[in-house]
Design a protein around this nucleic acid. Structure first.
Length: 420
RNA sequence: GGAGAGGUGGCCGAGCGGCUGAAGGCGCGGGUCUCGAAAACCCGUAUAUCGCUUUGCGGUAUCGAGAGUUCAAAUCUCUCCCUCUCCGCCA
């Protein structure tokens, strides 16, 4: 959520941000709506002030004076009553529309974010690890995994339709090993482990920004309940409606969860294997920070996610998203992409974002600063997507005989050093 | 699922339909005392929002949520939500 005060007093900043994002959002509609809203609010409050005043007088006249004055006042109040009721209805109408509209404004990009028109304009910040030279033609992860009998997409679709994975044998175990491996890395880096519910109420999704705009991306499983599309949702909502102290910050959480996404409108895109499924596993990082610390904490969080890839010895690059590619709630985002030798392309395995106070406003999460309260900043990042890391290991550690080696830091979690 | 109890400020906890934005306590901030500290005492301590003559003043709203009764609701009525206890069922 954007601060309505900025919209009133400095709408040019917001418009500039929307333009950089290529957003077609019409801010002027909100500006006009807000003017009307405040006009009605003033009328409404004046009526109520009058009501309170007369009501007070009625109380004072009680018993003392003759009933005459009292009755006249009561009569006046009766006519006021209807006026207030009408005014309340009008006001509620404006307020509901205004808030509803506000929920659709995306975050404003940080000024350091490269301005761009499409993902092509994203900026590669750095590379890490050597892209391996193969003495043979490397296979893609789907072929490798099927040959090794560690997953079975045919059975998955028999059970659940398209875009689901069924892992078996060493595949199931590798997935489990990766989850534990990743969480353990983050625990050594100061994150607190959480195992949250995978179903959350609507207000949580409004809090982090998935709703109301991205309803079609979510699995709904009740009137008010949804499957989480990412652990960012439950983790960021831990401190919804709370006032934190400065000493508590930064708060750092790590959680493994399954994630559920409809992937509406992505038919035919990334249809292979583990890359874009309706259900996938992810280890997620979330931080709550003081406003002035969030940019530094963003860099640290990127490094925390990178540590997973470094320890897995996977070649990756860090990409800074341009303004056009930023997510709805984010002010600045880095993606981590791994080189996939079988597919011959870079694949996103992590997206690390600083949402600044955008989510905190929706979540109503603040810190006390002397006498004043201030919204905190929230950050979230994958640390990292498990299925995609799995696929990357298959492609990067494949051997000419079709077997796959296990990165040495992962061996103690997996139990052996090779899948054959 | 059945039976009960309860939801009031940062926390605990009072609260007869008008004098209650809400006693008292704790906590927190400031002060007095002290060489300093503790104790004691004194003062101050909610949030949101709008307006203004904007280090402040004023209006409005907020006692789980919503609706109702009333001139007037923390207080009365109804619906819903949540928490706790007991029983049943259950991974």
């Amino acid at each position: 959520m954007i601060d309505i005060k900025i919209i009133r007093e400095n709408s040019a900043i917001i418009k500039e941000g929307l333009k950089k994002r290529n957003s077609k959002f019409n801010l002027d509609e909100i500006i006009l709506l807000d003017v009307d809203y405040r006009k009605v609010l003033k009328e409404n409050e004046e009526l109520k002030a009058k009501r309170n005043k007369i009501s007070d007088e009625i109380g004072k006249v009680k018993g003392t004076e003759g009933q005459g004055g009292r009755e006249a006042l009561i009569k006046e109040m009766q006519s006021l009553k209807q006026k207030i009721k009408d005014s309340d209805e009008k006001l509620n109408g404006f307020e509901t529309t205004l808030i509803e509209q506000m929920f659709y404004i995306p975050n404003i990009p940080d000024e350091t974010v490269p301005v761009g028109k499409s993902p092509e304009d994203n900026k590669v910040v750095r590379h890490s690890g050597e892209v391996r030279k193969f003495g043979f033609e490397p296979l893609d992860h789907q072929t490798l995994g099927e040959n090794l009998k560690i997953f079975d997409f045919k059975t998955a679709s028999k059970l659940s339709g398209s875009r689901f994975a069924l892992l078996k044998n060493e595949g199931a175990k590798l997935e489990r090993a990766l989850i534990n491996f990743m969480i353990d890395i983050h625990l050594t880096r100061g994150y607190k482990e959480i195992f949250p519910p995978f179903i959350v109420e609507k207000k949580c999704l409004i809090g982090t920004g998935q709703l109301p705009k991205f309803e079609e991306e979510l699995y709904k499983c009740g009137d008010n309940e949804y499957l989480i599309p990412t652990a960012e949702v439950p983790l960021s909502n831990i401190h919804r409606e709370e006032i934190l102290t400065e000493e508590q910050l930064p708060l750092k959480y790590v959680a493994y969860t399954a994630c559920f996404r409809r992937e509406a409108g992505s038919y035919g895109k990334d249809t292979s294997g583990l890359i874009r499924n309706h259900q996938f596993n992810k280890v997620e990082l979330v931080k709550f920070t003081k406003p002035e610390d969030s940019m530094v904490e963003l860099e640290k969080m990127v490094s925390d996610a990178e540590e997973v890839l470094r320890q897995l010895e996977l070649p990756y690059r860090v990409v800074e998203l341009c303004t056009a590619d930023l997510g709805f709630s984010s002010a600045k985002t880095y993606d981590l992409e791994i080189w996939m030798p079988g597919e011959k392309k870079w694949r996103e395995v992590s997206s690390v974002s600083n949402c600044k106070d955008f989510q905190a406003r929706r979540l109503n999460c603040k810190i006390r600063r002397g006498k004043k309260l201030e919204f905190i900043h929230t950050l979230n990042g994958s640390g990292v997507a498990v299925g995609r890391a799995f696929a990357a290991i298959l492609e990067n550690f494949q051997n000419s005989d079709g077997s796959v080696s296990i990165p040495k830091n992962l061996v103690k979690y997996f139990g052996k050093d090779k899948i054959t």
